[in-house]
């Protein structure tokens, strides 16, 4: 009996770890949706870009890959700001289909830009702690997974402090509560859009770094599967809600790993999509979503 509990908590721990990467992705998506009311379908591409930037910095510098977060997050923030300024701002408010279809162009551009630079073969990185396991009773916890969970928690706490305590954070919250009202109160909404999109991309970039460090393989076309999981999370947790993204992310991480454990690894990717469909059939506005507009 003790063995079963051990295995189950081991699987739960894996779920916690894989949930972390999805939480970062979904938090970014929700932050952007809250302010701009758009869903960036190219968000998985930011994650992919994050893995490649980490990989590139790792190869040229040889630094500890976790330190490379200092590189990948700012680069992705800049990329996000540029994308917002050049692509999304001109079409904001011209219709939902336009806002959806423009991210398709971005997916093409990012995937193939990366393939052009780094070719399209599968790559992977090796963390310096890859062999270290920490024994905790019946659990064997890879040190990397523990660091990833801690780093994610740190990023989320800093995001929380930024949103609650700084003037810019307040502006973002104001714009996501009521865009027009924020505008009337003197918030520069266009600047907030740019910044929010940048932060969302930066979070995806951090997710990309953690993805690469944890030893998972990546290629230029890998972004769509994590993106779908991000969508499943924001449908579970509610469009635009950051606490929802965290709970939804943990739920998807758990469900995924328990499915892989019971039904086999090949169902891992399909299960979050099936969950997404089931939720939408029961509640077309998402689990905690409200009818707006």
């Amino acid at each position: 009996m003790d063995g079963t509990i051990g295995i189950l908590s081991q699987v739960a721990f894996w779920g916690l770890y894989s949930g972390c990467i999805y939480i970062l992705l979904a938090t970014g998506l929700n932050l952007i949706f809250g302010v701009m009311k758009i869903v960036n379908f190219a968000h998985g591409e930011f994650l992919m870009l994050g893995t490649y930037i980490t990989f590139f910095l790792f190869v040229i510098s040889g630094f500890n890959p976790y330190i490379l977060l200092i590189g990948s997050i700012p680069i992705l923030i800049i990329a996000g700001v540029i994308v917002e300024r050049l692509c999304f701002r001109p079409i904001l408010g011209t219709g939902k289909l336009n806002e959806i279809f423009i991210s398709l162009g971005l997916i093409y551009i990012f995937q193939n830009l990366v393939a052009l630079i780094w070719t399209d073969e599968w790559r992977s990185m090796r963390s310096p702690y890859a062999d270290i396991l920490i024994n905790l009773g019946p659990l064997q916890l890879p040190l990397d997974y523990l660091i990833i969970i801690t780093v994610t928690a740190m990023i989320l706490v800093s995001l929380y402090i930024f949103l609650q305590k700084t003037a810019l954070g307040r502006a973002i919250r104001a714009a996501s509560q009521n865009r027009k009202g924020a505008m009337l109160m003197g918030v520069n909404v266009e600047k907030v859009d740019m910044l929010t999109f940048g932060i969302g991309a930066g979070l995806a970039g951090a997710a990309g770094t953690l993805w690469a460090v944890s030893g998972q393989v990546f290629n230029p076309y890998m972004g769509s599967i994590p993106a779908i999981k991000g969508f499943a999370i924001i449908i579970l947790g509610g469009l635009g809600s950051i606490p929802g993204a965290i709970i939804g992310g943990l739920a998807i991480g758990m469900v995924e790993n328990f499915t892989a454990f019971t039904l086999g690894g090949s169902w891992k990717d399909a299960v979050s999509f099936i969950l997404l469909i089931v939720v939408l059939v029961i509640r077309p506005t998402g689990l905690f979503g409200e009818d707006e507009e």
Binding site: V39, I100, I228, S266, D269, A270, L276, I277, L280, P284
Partner: peptide, 29 residues
Amino acid sequence: LTCVRLREWFLAMVTFGFAVIIQTLIVSQ
């Protein structure tokens, strides 16, 4: 049938995911 009641964003997500998941099923199950 699952999509008729959905808002644009969710419709786009469902259809986007559907093609990827079908591919995963075709190559595994």
